[in-house]
Design a protein around this nucleic acid. Structure first.
Length: 459
RNA sequence: GGCGGCAUAGCCAAGUGGUAAGGCAGGGGUCUGCAAAAUCCCGAUCCCCAGUUCAAAUCUGGGUGCCGCCUCCA
């Protein structure tokens, strides 16, 4: 399969390993999960499901950066322990992802649990001459790592010339970055060979990835905004430390804008996962996000989400009606369905092109509905295929969700349907229509077909 | 200033050399007592200019516009 690698800025061939190792940058838990977190989570959830579908296992790690400036700032402001805040928002994050149908990762390591390993790594980097201590801080010596800039396409000379780097007198070189920061009064800290302090940003991801996935692994993911400096620095630290290539494929998702503006708190255009879930199902949110290729910037609008939900509804409507007419049947025996499955895989094999894969699902949808109309036995096979492929994307409702439906309601509606059928036989259209209209008002939709009447509770 | 991305029908969105998937909206037909659902048909020459090529939305050069990163960020 072909996967775009930020490192080479082109698609490269990837041959899946039996166990695929993935590290995805997680969140700094200091506030509610938002749309910008939902995209990489959903994308990687789908990637994982797709590999599983192909028979591979995936070992996936996503970190919580639970020691961080923003958390400390909040902790000082609210006079609450930093780890209490990060613990709370970590849980909130996991809950939000659960509600989006994201399968949990294998590990969710936290900085606070990795202090010893981080210190070990920092020590190692100093010993190897890639880092130095300065007044309780430790910095990575960028000029000791010749290929610095290879991921982000940056040039150290130009970075140095740039005036935007904060001038810190402790640094030997303005491009150097902190591995360890000495503690300021009141901040959370740990003791280290360099005194009380805490890890700098970047080092935690290296330490945790190295520990859980080894010195080299397949994929490292995250938002495009992390390429520089975060991922660039991760490469420098890790490769300087191990002497081996850290990651084979760097995979970055495009960012989300809202009404064409960057999502940010100061602009007040922040959409949280909770906001989304208030009006939409998880399937609708996933479908919306997956309708755009993961590397393309996604401009979120509520109208767009609503529109796309209509498309998804067709898929789920079909599945519902197919289920009433057919039992699942292996699709492997039918060439038309094999063809569709192949097209789906081709799309996914080409840099996880979910947008194209969705197009295949709509073709399957049409085919299945034709089977339905023609009473074709292949309907059951189409149903099964739809479940399998839709299941990779997580957009097909697993079971009929009729939360408010009960046996009692079933019986009552059946009685009304019988009465209506009788009315129809007498060509008493007025009564038949009245029953239908009033049920609709009550939230029950009737759909007549030539043979029978289907009914469902309005979404 | 440096690095990078994007620009395809009314809207959303695939498509990296051979004459444009799919979805939403819209129009028409079939089915139906009607409605709904479903199904069939109808719509773009791909921001502009110049080049390369038998052939370009797809490659090259130059523009224009929007956006991101370079400071925290998924």
């Amino acid at each position: 399969m072909q996967i775009y690698n930020t490192l080479s800025r082109k698609k490269e061939t990837y041959i899946p390993q039996d166990q695929i190792k993935v590290y995805v940058c997680g969140v700094t838990p200091y506030d509610e999960a938002h749309l910008g977190h939902a995209r990489p989570s959903i994308v990687w959830d789908v990637i994982k499901r797709y590999f599983n579908y192909q028979g591979y296992t995936v070992k996936m790690v996503q970190n919580f950066t639970d020691v961080d400036d923003k958390i400390i700032a909040r902790s000082l402001r609210e006079k609450r322990p930093a780890l209490e805040i990060s613990d709370y928002y970590s849980k909130r994050y996991l809950e939000a992802m659960d509600k989006l149908g994201v399968v949990r990762c294998d590990y969710y390591p936290r900085v606070s649990q990795y202090i010893i390993k981080i210190i070990e790594m920092v020590k190692g980097l100093i010993e190897k001459g890639h880092a130095y201590e300065s007044s309780g801080d430790v910095y990575f010596k960028v000029n000791s790592f010749p290929t610095y800039g290879k991921l982000s396409g940056r040039n150290v000379e130009e970075l140095r010339a740039g005036t935007r780097l904060a001038v810190e007198e402790n640094k030997q070189d303005p491009v150097d970055f902190a591995l360890w920061k000495s503690a300021k009064p009141g901040e959370i800290s740990w003791s280290s060979p360099w005194g009380e302090g805490r890890p700098g940003w970047h080092i935690e991801c290296s330490a945790m990835a190295l520990d859980l996935l080894g010195e080299s692994f397949d994929f490292h993911g995250g938002g495009l905004d992390l390429i520089f400096p975060h991922h660039e620095n991760e490469i420098a630290q890790s490769e300087a430390y191990t002497g081996k290539q850290f990651v084979s494929f760097w995979i970055h998702n495009g960012l989300i804008t809202i009404d064409n503006e960057k999502m940010s708190k100061s602009l007040g255009n922040f959409v949280t996962v909770e906001d989304l879930l208030r009006e939409n199902t998880k399937e609708e949110i996933r479908f919306y996000i997956l309708s755009t290729h993961y590397r393309t910037p996604l401009n979120f609008t509520w109208e767009g989400l609503k529109e796309s939900a209509k498309g998804l509804k067709r898929l789920n409507n079909s599945v519902r009606s197919w289920q009433e007419e057919a039992k699942p049947l292996d699709w492997q025996n039918f060439s038309e369905l094999n063809e569709l499955e192949k097209r789906f895989k081709d799309a996914m094999d080409d840099d996880f092109n979910t947008a194209q894969a969705l197009g295949v699902l709509f073709d399957l949808n049409r085919l299945g509905n034709q089977y339905l109309q023609q009473n074709d036995k292949r309907l059951g096979a189409a149903l099964k295929l739809m479940h399998e492929l839709g299941g990779i994307l997580g957009i097909i409702k697993e079971k009929e969700e009729k939360a408010i439906q009960t046996d009692l309601l079933d019986k009552v509606v059946e009685i009304l349907l019988e009465l209506r059928l009788a009315a129809k036989k007498e060509k008493n259209w007025a009564l038949a229509d009245k029953i239908r209209e009033q049920l609709l008002e009550a939230g029950i939709i009737l759909e007549d077909s030539t043979s029978a009447t289907r009914w469902k509770v309005k979404d």
